[in-house]
Amino acid sequence: MKVKKRILVACGTAIATSTVVARKIEEELDKRDIPVQITQCKASEVKSKVEGHDLVVTTTFVSDTGDVPVIRTVSFLTGVGIEQDIEKIVEYLNN
């Protein structure tokens, strides 16, 4: 069994935007048979929640993610550039 990678998805309020982003990422990675565990949070909560995650995907500015890489993108909302972002996500998760 593959070990589930953990992604933290952040946006301003953790109610609407990150919900859509989290679902899109999960669908896309599921197609590629990559199991992930996704947690949503507000941008302001990233610092306290980032520990234990392999990657942060955010629609807004975040700071203090320590060693965890960050992808800032709105592609999962606009539909523009999803493929490139998924490739980036997969690359980070494989490292």
Binding site: C11, G12, T13, A43, T59, T60, V74, L77, T78, G79, V80
Partner: peptide, 12 residues
């Protein structure tokens, strides 16, 4: 919220 996190989406 809009000031802190703008909500415009650059749709195609």
């Amino acid at each position: 919220r809009e000031r802190a996190h703008p909500s415009g989406l650059p749709m195609p």
